[in-house]
Design a protein around this nucleic acid. Structure first.
Lengths: 343, 343
DNA sequence: CTGAAAGCGCTAACAC
DNA sequence: GTGTTAGCGCTTTCAG
């Protein structure tokens, strides 16, 4: 019997040598034409270009980077929480737009807020020889990233920083955004506002809680804090439980997009969506179409991604200026759910 | 004056040679330990591992692939319509999950349904030496992809096929899904149903139109076709215009997710959301929370991505079986907007 | 303006 | 079990 050896079709891309032979020139001349560097006689160049076309030649970027002085691979790594989260996906597109315009490819992966995955995937990106890294950090431990930075890898943080890591970051002012949201509810007369937020080991979640606290204290309002809501379902369940206790809050500050959705679902199921006020952090798709429409503090994730990529490309290009923390402004979208007065 | 030469910090990762020196062994022994191949004495292996740890060594995947027999780079390319479109982002995550589990990295980019970008980015992925390609094709032209396939690159198509390209694909049955949606509206008594769809050069858009036509013909209902709605805004405007003409349709089949959102926005702005029936193709986030909740034919984009990646990995692994077309089932989510009877 | 030779980090083939 | 040598596709250095 013939053993069916799984022999993958041998990749047989043409190499520079093939092009050189086809054009009847030296290999270095091909290199010069392909990279548009140095001076090559117009006639020779034309012959080379024709050969490239005829053989469908494409230069191997990674092989080239092996010997190149700057060792660039023209690629960057992007580590997000989850590429399918609408917020992250917008960041992704912002990064892609800026990187693509500069001729860089993007290698992406999801960390799922798991420090273990971060520890694993950061060096993995390194082993693919990316020229730089954009990271939405999953944990508070700076060592994996620090190690890459020590090896000369430029790193830009998005969405949140990492304590003890001296590097560029692009974030929004979570604390003042949360304070604004809470003050808005207070200005409509609420004095019993619940905070429902994501896991407290996330710096963004902590900053938003801080903003909420500031506003409550200033107004001498009680605080009611429900943290660690890591998904829609938990948020929905927690909201329902909370509203059955008494005295129930008259307003809710939902400090993350999935939490907001869970809260809205719970209110809807209890028929309370027109009784309890809600302000969310992060816009949600169709947030303007539900009834009442959801008032939110919106971020601009596409811009965040774009700025992070531009910062990174500058570093890759040799920018050695001081560490920058870029704060992207938020906007307040007043749509109805946040303007319900207390009963 | 000193010219500030932008000299990027020299990447100085340790190489196998460094590890070999540190451990006092030959370079090939390091290679064997790092790749877990062949037999190495336990004591030697331990010394090597210690040196790897001490120097924070990471093997350079791409340099290795240069000489390796199978030339694998352990990376795949993913070309989507738009990484930030919720549907595409879910496909992305499905691909990442399957690829990541097999130790493959994902290089992604957005084509924006632009054949020009496809022509450009397909060979670009090739030049990064990816081991295979998953593509949501932007245009009807098979040449760029065919060229890669001729060079031995495995290709799997998602969401839609390309005429004239003999390769694996993962799609849903758009035509029967659209027929079902339309029949559903007919069963509620509608005889004047509008079709609002995406650009007709997209195969999916054409198949959905075909399904709509079939159902209308079978019921001897008139057809009312508004194609080429490439975004939310166009869909909204077109819907508003259509409903002001007479006789206006009593139901709408919205054949794409962004179109559905535009339609819902228009109905809402005219106060007709409880008068005109709507069934959408593709689920939309929060579609169950608007009023009325949106009835849709839903796809499972995460599964589509996962199956595509699994198919591709099998091909990369040497599977030379016949071309497969995998059809992922759709599901019908009845939620209210599709069950409004004609006025 | 053009080409030959060396070498990037690694693996294949073959010694010892 | 382990080390040596050659060479992957490319860029660098240095001659012509």
């Amino acid at each position: 019997m013939t053993p069916l050896s799984p022999k993958p079709a041998p990749r047989q891309r043409p190499t520079m040598k093939d092009v050189a032979r086809e054009a009847g020139v030296g290999i270095k001349t091909v290199s010069r034409v392909v990279n548009g560097e140095g001076y090559v006689g117009e006639a020779t160049a034309a012959r080379v270009r024709a050969a490239v076309e005829r053989l469908a030649y494409r230069r191997d970027v990674s092989a080239g980077s092996l010997r190149r002085a700057d060792r660039r691979t023209l690629s960057i790594g992007l580590l997000l929480g989850d590429v399918s989260n609408p917020f992250d996906a917008q960041v992704h597109r912002g990064v892609e737009d800026a990187a693509g315009a500069a001729g860089f490819a993007v290698l992406s992966a999801s960390l799922d807020e798991d420090p273990e995955r971060e520890r694993e995937l950061v060096p993995t990106m390194g082993s693919y020889q990316v020229d730089g890294l954009i990271v939405m950090p999953a944990g508070p431990d700076p060592t994996a990233l620090q190690r890459e930075m020590d090896a000369g890898m430029p790193v830009v943080l998005v969405d949140r920083g990492v304590e003890g890591l001296e590097t560029d970051s692009v974030v929004v002012d979570n604390q003042s955004g949360a304070r604004l949201a809470t003050e808005h509810l207070i200005s409509y007369g609420h004095r019993h506002i619940a905070f429902m937020g994501d896991r407290q080991f996330l710096p963004t979640a902590r900053m938003r809680l801080e903003g909420y606290r500031e506003a409550c204290w200033a107004a001498r309002a009680a605080t009611h804090i429900i943290p660690d809501l890591s998904n829609e379902y938990l948020a929905e369940t927690a909201t329902r439980a909370m509203l059955q206790a008494s005295p129930a809050p008259t307003a809710i500050f939902a400090a993350q997009n999935l939490v907001t959705i869970g809260v809205v679902r719970a209110l809807r199921s209890l028929g309370l969506e027109h009784e309890i006020a809600v302000v969310g952090f992060d816009d949600i798709s169709l947030g303007d179409l539900v009834s009442p429409a959801i008032t939110v503090i919106a971020q601009d994730p596409h811009l965040i991604g774009k700025m992070a990529a531009e910062r990174l490309l500058a570093r890759i290009g040799g920018d050695t200026g001081p560490v920058e923390q870029i704060i992207v402004p938020t906007s307040f979208l007043v749509r109805g759910s946040g303007e319900i007065p207390p009963a």
